[in-house]
Structures are given as structure tokens and as C-alpha cells.
Amino acid sequence: MVTGKISATHAFLLGLVLAIAGFITWSATQASTTLNNLVVVAPTAIIIGLLSIGIVAKTLLKPATEPSSSSTDKSSIWSDILLLAGFSAFCFALTNVGFDVATFVFVWVGVLMCGSKGKWQPPLYALVFTVFLVKGFGSLFPYPMTTLVL
């Protein structure tokens, strides 16, 4: 019988969860080993470790299914990752570049990445949306907001 494999994204997720759990546990035990400090961290870390083993074992032992990662799926995953990277850069640029310029650029590029074919509609929409956000949404913020142009 051919058994299953762990996909790259699943392996990455499990590795990330274990790394986060390991680091938080290490950090908490370094800070203090009293019961009050570890009352949630320690049991949670143990359970995460056991669940990881269980999930990996279950995935590896169960019969393999039809391979689903066609080239379309792979390109879709990479497009999602590209949009996520763009979104992360946008989040970073909000306070470092300016809310107005960062939003305008992200919405314009985002509309194109999401499949819009128009030439003038995306930048026009991005402009109107940015002005609406800065003058509308932004005016309700109780905090100062960095802008470059507006």
C-alpha cells in the first residue's frame, strides 16, 4: 500500500507551530519556573507536541490519495503568496511611507493582481478609494496618521 505524504505547506505550518511553541516555552521557563508562570504554557506545549506527532503519523500512515497539486494549483499558491507579500509590504509602508501613497499603490497593484484587465479604471478607483479612506475612515481615528500627499 502506498502511504500519504506531507505537503510542503503542511510541513511548513507544523514546523512553524512547533517553533513558536518551543520558543514561547523556552522563553517562559527562562523567565520563571513557578507554577503561576507555566500553568498554561507547559501543558499547552506538551499537548502541541503530542498533537504534532499524531497529525504527522496519521498523514504518513493513511493511504495516499490522488495527487492534487496540479500546475494550476501551484501557480495559484504562488499568486496567493505574492499577494500576501505585497500586503505585508503595504502594512509596513503605512507608517513608514505614508497611508495615502501606500494605500494608492497597494490598491492599484492589488486590483491588477486580482485579475482586472482595465487600463485606467484601476488607478482611478485606487485614487478615489484612497481619498475616501484618508478623509473618511482616517478622520475617525483617534491617532495621528502619517500622509505624504493628502
Binding site: F87, F90, C91, L94, T95, F99, T103, F106, V107, V109, G110, V111, M113, C114, G115, S116, Y125, F129, L133, F137, G138, L140, F141, P142, Y143, M145
Partner: peptide, 20 residues
Amino acid sequence: AYLVPSVLAMCAWGGYGITG
């Protein structure tokens, strides 16, 4: 195509609106 980037932008703005 228009909704996704717009709401994503609003999500980031919302994050700022909460923490400042």
C-alpha cells in the same frame, strides 16, 4: 478584483485604528 485589495487595505487600516 476590486473588493479584495480594498478590504485588505481596510483590514490594515483597522489594525492601525486599534493599536495606533
